[in-house]
């Protein structure tokens, strides 16, 4: 079996609810979900259907109620909080709709954070950060603050940050929703390239149909459940009907 076919994330029967009593919301009602390495996998569905919640439990940033989650061959069930944090720091990269760059730090410093968290020295981390900024097309912005940049540029800084420590799993929540169409395509080109890296898997939650064409597979969710998993012909058909 080639590495591009091995399973990166496997979720079985996962449930998650928020709150208690009348305010209780069931966000995930028994979700099965899987992604392969080398894959760019889109999760789509109407607002409130549980996409972000699914992403959060897969990333190990949120506790869930029932079911099993395996990420990159590691079972997250029953893992100590500290171990999950360390696992995230090593293997997971994050990209958010609102970029979440630290405004008081320069772009280079922002990008160097995951490297520093993985024990690299400051000089080495910053040199690597500058290289990464160049590869995302921001060679001259290293000393600038994120707030001096456009939204698309900020998201590119965020991509450089997410990729800096070469994580095997890239988790993106609505990475293009705050951007115009052209900029969104530039961002998706970068993410698609990143996904081609052997052993890596990119999961993108979105309700932006403009980017469906980048998907290798699409998981469709509705009301806390997965309703369709599309690839091949079905995927092409889905993309066409939604454009």
């Amino acid at each position: 079996m080639s590495s591009s076919n091995s399973i990166a994330v496997q979720v079985r029967g996962v449930t998650k609810s928020f709150g208690v009593g009348d305010s209780r919301t069931v966000a995930l009602k028994g979700v099965d979900f899987s992604t392969r390495e080398g894959e760019l996998h889109l999760v789509v569905g109407p607002s409130g259907c549980g996409k972000t919640t699914l992403l959060s439990v897969v990333a190990g940033t949120l506790d869930w109620d029932g079911g099993e989650i395996d990420v990159l061959g590691t079972r997250l069930n029953g893992m100590a909080k500290g171990a999950v944090t360390a696992f995230r720091g090593k293997h997971v990269g994050f990209i958010f709709q609102q970029f979440n760059l630290i405004p008081t730090l320069t772009c280079i410093e922002n990008v160097s954070v995951p490297l520093l968290l993985n024990g690299r020295h400051r000089g080495e981390a910053e040199r690597r950060a500058a290289e990464l900024l160049t590869t995302v097309g921001l060679a001259d912005t290293g000393r600038k603050r994120p707030t001096e940049l456009s939204g698309g540029q900020q998201q590119r800084v965020a991509i450089a940050r997410a990729l800096s420590h070469e994580p095997r799993l890239l988790i993106c929540d609505e990475p293009t929703s705050a951007l115009d169409s052209a900029t969104g395509h530039q961002i998706m080109d970068l993410l698609a390239t990143a996904a081609r890296k052997p052993g890596r898997c990119v999961i993108i939650v979105t309700h932006d149909p403009r980017i469906y064409g980048y998907a290798d597979r699409i998981t469709v969710m509705e009301d806390g459940r997965v309703t369709q998993v599309l690839e091949g012909e079905a995927l092409r058909h889905f993309i066409e009907t939604h454009q």
Partner: peptide, 16 residues
Amino acid sequence: LRHLGALKAMGASTWL
């Protein structure tokens, strides 16, 4: 808090 949360997501321990 948002940034501290982001750092935590990126693997910064509570102790750090």
